[in-house]
């Protein structure tokens, strides 16, 4: 599904700042991978580079989605190809209603995939049902995108978008941060409901707790822009108990 090979990137405006330094990982269809790593290790940057944000220069390596070169596509083409990023900090867009936003996005992607646009009625039914599952207040659908939403509401709104867009490759950047215990369960249920043999997840998190709900197949530890260790779910437990100290020392040795 997603194949990242020896990815290097630096800041466009300052080539001295190298953020990804030879990162490789492969996510197969249906798998859930978790990435953990200290603050500033480049996790969000990886998610941005994969989704096509300006400001980063890829100097080496490749990233493909089902064989297609992601790095060569515009952000909207990556989305149409099936990539989705749930942002660590979802963006507020005053003046654009959440519903209009969702509908524009859903129909844009359907169009790009050669499908017919959803009628207003069909769309409304779908969004209401999905919102209900995530216990999103219908009022939130009417408000401008993320404006005045609480931290947890923003994260749930990200998952709602994911559920509506039905991507193949979902990247969740700290979707658990800012969520209370119940919301974490809701969001995890939302993610788990989407799990199937054709859909993969890359879950960036600091806490093992999320991984109790969303069981990963593989856990990666990232530091200074590369994966320093890969293992099973037990790796997350190890981090939870001992922190990154030993792992970092081990990697340096």
């Amino acid at each position: 599904m997603l194949e990242i090979k020896n990815l290097h990137c630096e800041l466009e405006e300052d080539s001295e700042v190298k953020i990804l330094n030879g990162l490789s990982l492969t996510v197969n269809p249906g798998e859930v991978h978790a990435i953990m790593g200290p603050n500033g290790s480049g996790k969000s940057t990886l998610s941005y580079v994969l989704s096509g944000r300006d400001g980063y220069e890829v100097t080496e390596g490749s990233a493909t989605l089902e064989g297609a070169d992601l790095l060569d596509m515009e952000p909207e083409e990556r989305a149409a190809a099936g990539l989705f990023l749930a942002f660590q900090y979802p963006v507020e867009i005053p003046g654009v209603g959440n519903m209009t936003f969702l509908r524009t996005a859903v129909n844009a992607q359907r169009k790009a995939r050669g499908m017919e646009e959803l009628s207003a009625g069909e769309f409304l039914k779908l969004v209401r049902a999905k919102a209900k599952e995530l216990q999103i207040d219908p009022d939130m659908l009417k408000r401008p995108v993320n404006v005045g939403f609480s931290g947890g509401e923003k994260k749930r709104n990200e998952i709602l978008q994911m559920a509506m867009l039905e991507p193949k490759m979902c990247i969740l950047d700290e979707t658990d941060s800012g969520l209370d215990v119940d919301a974490m369960k809701l969001v995890s249920d939302g993610v788990n409901a989407l799990r199937d043999a054709e859909r993969s997840f890359l879950v960036i998190t600091h806490y093992q707790r999320l991984l109790n709900h969303i069981k990963p197949d593989v856990v990666h530890i990232m530091s200074e822009g590369r994966i320093i260790k890969t293992g099973g779910p037990e790796l997350a437990l190890e981090v939870e108990e001992n922190g990154y100290g030993d792992l970092l020392a081990e990697a340096q040795a």
Partner: peptide, 15 residues
Amino acid sequence: SQLFYLRTRGVAEDE
């Protein structure tokens, strides 16, 4: 960042 956010949801740049 608003523009990028919209584009990651599949909305073309012009739109």
